[in-house]
Design a protein around this nucleic acid. Structure first.
Lengths: 226, 226
DNA sequence: AAATTGTTCTTCGTATACACTTCGGCTGGA
DNA sequence: TCCAGCCGAAGTGTATACGAAGAACAATTT
């Protein structure tokens, strides 16, 4: 939100709490801490080699972000995304990323488009090489890039958080459908390049519809158990 | 997200950090801590009569919510919403509350509608009595209620956060336009009651357009300061 | 005047202590 | 056997103290 300031003055210090938070997030997303897993402060402190304070602060933020649930006097457990909330997440993402696509189309510079095209190209290569992990990464990079191009920090940060959660759910339960979605990405970038906001928005919508449908196909059962 | 659990087992303990966070939020929204104000941990700890630990945890969450900016090694300051981000906030709210209105229309029970109507009625009374503060409260209550009725927890919590920020900006810079917006609310609730999602969505959109226009009229100058 | 140094304030992280809850197991009685 | 209730262990919630390091600012020196 005020990254300019943070960059200028601030520091490259990266407080421990932030490192812990980042590590915690990725550990949860990767399934190292599976849903329902109890996260005691001492245990996390030991896992990350820090004292309880940074852990506690990271936990509060992780709670605000929806990665953990904190029961007063009972501690934190990894949240359990239910299939219900998956649909909810997609419903919100649909609106948000559609808006992002429109704004991106209206604001994208030539350099922005070039960057998107580069990601597209890398994605094509990775797809050919069956490197699913890399495909997924590029997938994420593309979406986040579009969000950034939209130029709306709120939109960007909110949609990013949602995107992370969706990723989390995917890793847990199902295979990645990434290859299949790549042609939709091309359409989306084409629309953004054209500068036609309406068209870009439609492209984003149909992309998300397809993604959400795929998610549901793969998601039958699997999440409810914590 | 798992409020059922929290209610059942949990506690009515309300940890200090949560109380501090709530107090901090409202203090910032009310302008008691104006934008740019420096918030040292000791000072907050003293203000709220607690030790530094709960304050620190509350600060981290407040940062995640965008109410404060934390400069590493330099401490926290109250964030400064710029007029640029106001437009951004409205752009996102528009999409989100439109979706909420649609979902609410599709899911609202008779009891839900009754609750909305009650708020509407109270709002009318408060408007007649020129009780602007109460009008604003009811305004908020109405919007939050609609979000709740939507039944989408993500949507609800995200839009709620945005709503709080908008309120904050309003309190700081400008008078409330609440009375003027009340007729739009009636339209919105009518649409929700009708069960017509499309119509409800349109009502929400035009309401937010009007609100955003009003915001911009009042917002000329005032926020840019540091 | 510019650069350097020193002082002070504050954050950041650690460590410790302790009250209070919750939980699981144990014991004893029906 | 089954259940009630007690007890102790574990873990959170909060307070406090302390040391290290950074930032801001004033004082001093060049």
């Amino acid at each position: 939100m005020a990254e300019d300031l943070r960059d200028k003055l601030g520091a490259q210090h990266l407080p421990l709490r932030d490192q812990v938070l980042a590590a915690l997030r990725t550990a949860i997303i990767n399934g190292d801490y599976p849903p329902g897993e109890r996260l005691t402060e001492d245990r996390l402190a030991e896992d990350f080699g820090v004292s309880r304070n940074p852990v506690r602060e990271a936990l509060r933020v992780a709670e605000a972000e929806g990665f953990v649930v904190i029961l007063p006097r009972r501690g934190a457990v990894v949240a359990s995304p239910s299939s219900g909330t998956i649909a909810d997440m997609f419903a919100v993402r649909e609106r948000l990323e559609a808006l992002a696509a429109r704004l991106a189309a209206e604001r994208a510079t030539a350099a922005d488009v070039a960057a998107l095209r580069a990601l597209l190209e890398q994605g094509r290569e990775a797809t050919e090489q069956q490197d699913l992990r890399r495909v997924a990464e590029l997938n994420t990079a593309l979406h986040l890039r579009i969000l950034r191009i939209s130029g709306n920090p709120w939109l960007s940060s909110i949609a990013k958080a949602l995107y992370l959660h969706v990723q989390w759910v995917f890793r847990l339960g199902a295979a990645e459908r990434a290859p299949h979605s790549w042609s939709e990405h091309i359409q989306l970038v084409d629309a953004i390049e054209s500068g036609d906001g309406e068209r870009a928005e439609q492209a984003a919508l149909s992309h998300l519809d397809a993604a959400s449908a795929a998610a549901y196909e793969n998601a039958e059962g699997g999440y409810g158990a914590h």
